[in-house]
Computed example of a mutant assay.
Amino acid sequence: MPMPDPRIDAYIARQADFAQPILNELRARVHAACADVEEAIKWGAPAFLYRGKLIAGMAGFKQHAAFNLWLGKQVVEANAALGQGMGQYGRLTSPADLPAKRETTRHVHAAMALVEAGGAARAVSAPKPPPSLPDDLAAAMATNAASQRTWDGFPPGKRREYAEWITEAKRDETRARRVAQSVEWLAEGKSRNWKYAKC
């Protein structure tokens, strides 16, 4: 039986008080329905995989939580009442909003059957290789220790955002401006898309 992912424990602990019991219950239901489920973090939220393929995910928001079955239209009957919010279970504001446990079990089993039938569920892509550090950014960071520390502490995805932003510049002047801006933001500990982090 796969081990629980401690990142999911941390994710749930960061959520609003109303969301924590919902997310804990959903997690328990998925594990009860699928003994071989693997946990992961995808798109910044808890995800559940079966035989390496994504079958479900869940997330907490400011005023609701959501549960999303991958290829949900194939495993959950259409229900207009559930169409309010992300996922097949709609906006979840308390555990009472969840369907009966047997329904969740049936949905997880249907998602597993899709995987067993030949991989109808989408495969989780292999991780991208770490981005290469553009030479001009490396040179600029060599004179700014704070920016280099931030870069070194960033995960590959955040590094990739900066690297791609710089290498996609079409003109030398644009690239130079982007390098200078990157060093400034990195020195302040900011990710490339820091302006949108609280949206």
Rank of each mutant, 00 (worst) to 15 (best):
Ile55Phe: 03
Pro127Glu: 15
Arg192Gly: 09
Ala138Arg: 02
Ile12Gln: 06
Gln88Thr: 13
Arg177Met: 14
Ala146Pro: 04
Ala32Gln: 14
Val124Gly: 04
Gly119Glu: 08
Pro21Phe: 05
Arg122Ile: 12
Tyr162His: 07
Ala140Tyr: 02
Arg171Gly: 13
Arg29Cys: 14
Arg51Gln: 07
Phe61Pro: 07
Lys198Asp: 15
Leu49Asn: 02
Ala139Cys: 04
Ala28Phe: 12
Glu164Met: 03
Ala13Gln: 07
Ala28Val: 14
Gly87Ala: 03
Ala140Glu: 10
Arg178Gln: 14
Val30Met: 10
Gly153Gln: 00
Asp36Pro: 12
Glu168Ala: 02
Val183Leu: 01
Gly83Gln: 08
Met3Val: 12
Ala45Val: 00
Met112Pro: 09
Asn68His: 01
Val115His: 04
Arg192His: 08
Asn79Val: 06
Thr174Lys: 01
Pro129Glu: 08
Lys53Ala: 08
Ala176Glu: 12
Thr105Val: 15
Pro155Gly: 11
Gly189Ser: 01
Ser147His: 03
Ala33Cys: 12
Ala78Leu: 03
Gly157Thr: 14
Ala13Asp: 15
Ala139Arg: 05
Arg122Leu: 05
Ser132Ile: 14
Asn68Met: 02
Arg160Pro: 10
Phe18Thr: 10
Phe61Tyr: 04
Lys42Trp: 05
Ala169Phe: 01
Asp97Gln: 02
Asn193Lys: 02
Ala80Arg: 11
Phe67Leu: 06
Leu71Asn: 14
Gly60Trp: 00
Gly72Val: 03
Ala176Pro: 12
Arg106Ser: 13
Cys34Asp: 13
Ala10Ile: 10
Val179Thr: 04
Glu173His: 09
Pro131Lys: 02
Phe67Trp: 01
Trp70Gln: 10
Asn68Arg: 03
Lys101Ile: 13
Ser125Phe: 04
Val37Tyr: 01
Pro2Asn: 00
Ala56Trp: 05
Gln74Gly: 09
Phe154Glu: 06
Val76Asp: 12
Arg171Thr: 15
Thr167Asp: 09
Trp185Val: 08
Pro21Gly: 07
Pro2Lys: 02
Lys42Phe: 05
Arg106Tyr: 07
Gln88Arg: 05
Asp5Gln: 00
Asp172Ala: 14
Gly85Pro: 13
Ser191Thr: 08
Pro131Gly: 11
Thr150Arg: 02
Leu92Ala: 07
Ile41Pro: 08
Lys53Cys: 07
Pro4Tyr: 06
Lys128Gly: 10
Thr93Glu: 15
Ser182Met: 06
Pro130Thr: 09
Asp152Trp: 05
Ile55Leu: 03
Leu98Ser: 13
Phe18Asn: 09
Leu23Arg: 00
Ala33Ser: 13
Tyr89Val: 15
Arg91Thr: 15
Asp17Cys: 05
Met86Tyr: 08
Asp5Thr: 07
Arg160Trp: 07
